[in-house]
């Protein structure tokens, strides 16, 4: 589509006008640094990711198994009760095919797209899971409801981070029968 026909008239500012100082601007880069305390819930979550496991927190009143875990149930307004391991498999809740990088630069034609997805993790309550990226899949083959599995970094490369999972990839075999496998994690 030709975007140029929607552009307004007038004299355009060129990049050179800015670099030559014909247009007065001031560039500042903030130097702000943070180190957030993960807290009890997210601290344990990250630690378990480092072990190749996905852990949730259960509220025994409403029965929700919450992922990411939290130390209090915001609906029941009480402390949550127990740690529960989940599977490292799940279902695509929603996804997007991103043709742009985080800084809005375009991904060159022919290079892989970014494939962020919300994944409902098996063992967690409905609507709860992990925001991650999909991989080892053609973009046009991705479907909502598709079964996926975590691909983990090697144990000695993990650092207790959400990126200890490199991506989720489709579970190809036994689409209908696959119910549950024992023991989350690798």
């Amino acid at each position: 589509m030709e975007l140029s026909k929607f552009e307004l008239g007038g004299t355009r500012i060129k990049q050179s006008d800015i670099s030559k100082g014909n247009v007065l601007t001031l560039a500042v880069t903030p130097k702000l640094e943070y180190a957030w305390d993960d807290g009890v819930a997210i601290g344990r979550y990250l630690e378990e990711l480092g072990n190749g496991k996905i852990i949730a927190r259960k509220c025994n009143k409403c029965g929700r198994i919450m992922l990411p875990p939290r130390m209090f149930c915001e609906l029941c307004w009480r402390a949550t009760d127990e740690w529960v391991y989940c599977e490292d498999t799940g279902t695509v809740n929603t996804f997007s095919l991103c043709h742009v990088n985080w800084d809005a630069s375009r991904i060159p034609e022919g290079e892989p797209l970014h494939l962020p997805a919300v994944i409902h993790i098996d063992g967690a309550s409905p609507g709860m899971g992990i925001l991650h990226v999909l991989g080892e899949v053609e973009p046009d083959k991705i479907k909502i409801g598709m079964k996926v599995r975590a691909v983990w970094k090697k144990p000695d490369e993990r650092e207790g981070s959400i990126t200890d999972i490199t991506h989720f990839k489709p579970v190809r075999a036994a689409r209908k029968k696959s119910k549950k496998k024992s023991g989350g994690g690798r």
């Binding site: 957030w36 807290g39 601290g43």
Partner: peptide, 26 residues
């Protein structure tokens, strides 16, 4: 410092105490 406690957990502690004082829930 308050290491080991997230900003959410810190506020939750204060909120629970405040609501318990007057016997209310959210």
């Amino acid at each position: 410092t308050s290491p080991g406690t997230s900003f959410r957990e810190l506020t939750y502690e204060a909120a629970v105490k405040a609501y318990n004082e007057v016997g209310i829930e959210p």
